[in-house]
Structures are given as C-alpha cells and as structure tokens.
C-alpha cells in the first residue's frame, strides 16, 4: 500500500514552502515578498512543522553517555545558578585557568 510520508497539511502547502530540497526552498524564499498573505502561509507552515516536531519526542541522543561524566545529575540541575559566579572569577579568557576553577570550587558549599 502506498502511503504519503508527510501529513496532508504539509502536502497542501504551496511552492516554495512544499519544496523538498532545502537549498531550492531557501533560494525561492529569498525572492518571496513578505506580503500579509504570504505571512499567513508562512505562519501556517510554521505551526504545522512545530506541531510535527513536538510529536517527535526527545532527541535520540538525549540518553547518550554524558560527555562530562564527573558532573552528576544534581550538577545538571544546579549549574545554571552557578555558571555566572564562576565566570565572574575569570572575567577574561586570559584569567581562565585551572587554579581559578579549583579556588572557586573550594570557596563554595557545593555538595548535593
């Protein structure tokens, strides 16, 4: 049985939105005037593609090995609150060294 690869909302989009080749689509869109009518088509294309992506689920590499194995799950949760503080200790790239990282780690109560 033949089956479409994409839902009808994608198949029904006008060219250039429904062009499969991303380079051809990009070139054609560069020449497309941003009139109110064209913006409506673009917003519809966006709405359908966002909904499609949301249904894909997590990225497949979400459970790949952590590239920083010594940084644990509590770290992943907490790092966004600490990053700025470490950066303050090393205001330029020239200041960024291992000794400063050790000094910063020693200065904070970091256990979980």
């Amino acid at each position: 049985m033949n089956r479409s690869l994409l839902p009808e909302v994608f198949r029904g989009l006008p060219v250039p939105w429904s062009l499969s080749d991303s380079i051809q689509r990009r070139d054609a869109l560069t020449a497309l005037s941003a009139t109110a009518d064209q913006r409506s088509v673009a917003l519809a294309a966006l709405e359908h593609s966002l909904a499609f992506m949301a249904a894909l689920g997590p990225d497949e590499d979400d459970d790949e090995p952590n590239p920083y194995p010594a940084l644990n799950d509590p770290f992943d949760e907490a790092w966004i609150f600490f990053g700025k503080d470490l950066t303050t200790r090393m205001p330029t790239f020239r200041d960024a060294d291992r000794v400063s990282v050790v000094a910063w780690l020693s200065s904070r109560r970091l256990g979980g």
Partner: peptide
C-alpha cells in the same frame, strides 16, 4: 528531516 527544515525555513523567513 523535512519538517525540521521547513520549520527552520519559516522561522528565518518570518
């Protein structure tokens, strides 16, 4: 891949 590419195209154009 095409849905992701379409979304990126629409975001850039808009």
């Amino acid at each position: 891949g095409k849905a992701i590419g379409l979304s990126a195209s629409a975001v850039r154009w808009l």
